[in-house]
Design a protein around this nucleic acid. Sequence first.
DNA 1: TAATAAAATTAGTTTTGTCTAATTTTATTA
DNA 2: TAATAAAATTAGACAAAACTAATTTTATTA
Lengths: 218, 218
Amino acid sequence: MNTFSEENYLKAIFRLSQMPAVSKISTSAIAESLGNNPASVVDMIRKLTDKQLIEYDKKKGVKLTAQGEKDAIQIIRKHRLWEVFLLEKLEYRWDEIHDIAEELEHIKHTDLADRLDKFLGFPEYDPHGDPIPKANGKMAKSFSASLADGKTGSTYRVAAVRDTSSAFLQYLHKLKISIGTQIRLIEQIAFDQSLVISIDNGEPTTVSSKFVENILIS
Amino acid sequence: MNTFSEENYLKAIFRLSQMPAVSKISTSAIAESLGNNPASVVDMIRKLTDKQLIEYDKKKGVKLTAQGEKDAIQIIRKHRLWEVFLLEKLEYRWDEIHDIAEELEHIKHTDLADRLDKFLGFPEYDPHGDPIPKANGKMAKSFSASLADGKTGSTYRVAAVRDTSSAFLQYLHKLKISIGTQIRLIEQIAFDQSLVISIDNGEPTTVSSKFVENILIS
DNA sequence: TAATAAAATTAGTTTTGTCTAATTTTATTA
DNA sequence: TAATAAAATTAGACAAAACTAATTTTATTA
C-alpha cells in the first residue's frame, strides 16, 4: 500500500502525463505541481522507483509504470466519486468539493469506491466534467477542446473546466456558468484578446482570454 | 487543528474516561488501548498538555480539558455518523464499518459532520447502539447495563454492544443478534458461568460469560 | 565556445510519531 | 520495612516527508 504522500505524487505525475503540452515530466514540474521543493521530489522519485511505480530517466523524465498508473487511476476514481457525493448528497457548492475530496480520496478499503459508485448510480462525469474511471480502470477521454479555440459567431456547450480552483469556480458561479451551459462567442477584442460572449443567450459579457482557456467544450 | 495521531489519543482518553470501572487514566492504560508503547504515550501526554487539551497529574492520571473533550466528542460524532452512512447507504456489514470509520473520522472540513448528519436524517444512535453526539456536543448517555447483570428468567432488549471488534460482531451475526433483538436468560451454568439464552424466543443456545458482558441492554 | 542561467542533486536538518533499552519512581507484598 | 514487581520516564534511535543551502549537471545564449 502507498502512503498519502506517495499517492499525491502518483496523482500529480498522472495529471502531468495527461497534459498534451507536457512532453517530459521533470523534477521541477512535479515540484511546482505539488508546491514542494525540488529536493523533496528527488527523494520521492527514488522511493517510487524502488517501489516500481515509476521509471525515471534523466533524459526522458518520469513515467508511471503499469502498476503506478493503475494506482493513480484508482485514486482519481475515488476523488471524482467523492466529489459527486459531496455535491449531490451533501449539497456542497461546486467550489468547495475539491479540497474535501483531496482528503477523502486517500481512504482505503476494499470495495469502498465500488460501493460509492453504485450508491451514486454509476456517474460518468464528476461535477467539473472530468470522466470518472470505471472499476476496471477504463476511463473516457477527458474533454480537451478549449473555448479559446472556438470560432467567433459559434455556440458551444460547456463540457468541463480545466481549472478547479475555488477562485475560478466562484467566478463561474457568479456568471451562472456550469456544465451544460451554452456559450456563444460574439467578438474577440484585438487589443488584449479578451472575448465578448453570450451566456445561455443572455446579454453580452466580456471575459479574459485566460478565462476561456479554462473552459472545455464538447 | 490536531493531527490524526493527536485525535486518536483524545478519542482513546475520552473512551477510557467513559468507562465506569476506570478511576484513573494511566499512561499504561492509554498505551494498551491504542496498542502503543508506554514511552510513546509519555511523549504524547506532553504534547497534548502543551496544547492544553489534557491535564496530567501523576497521582490522578490524565483528564481532558474542556477543549480536549470538545475535540474528542467531535471526532466521535464523525465516527458514528460515518458508521451510519457506511451501513445504511453503502450497505457494508455491521462488522466492517468500524475500521473504515476510523479513517473517515479524521476528515476535517467546516460543516462536514453537520451536512452528513442532515443527509442521514439526524440519527440518534450508531449501528452499534452508541449515541451520536449532536452538533453542540450534547450526547445521550451510553447504555451501560450489561446482559451479564440480568436476572435468570427475564427477557431483555439488546440496546448496544460494548465490543465492536469484527470477531464479536460476526459471532452476533451468526447468532442472528442485532440491536433490538430480545434475549431471555434461561439458566446460568455454575461450573464456568456460561449462560443458556433464548434469542427472539428461539431454541436455547449456550454462550460464555464474556459474551454476555459485551451485550448492553436498555 | 565560454559564460551564464536553469535544473537536478546531494548533504545535512527538522518535525512527527513511533520504537527499544535502561533507569527511576511508585506500589505491593512477604 | 525491605524486597520485589509494576508503572512511568528518560535517553537515544529510526522512518517518513518535508525543508535549506551548497554543489553539480545540463541547457541556453551571447
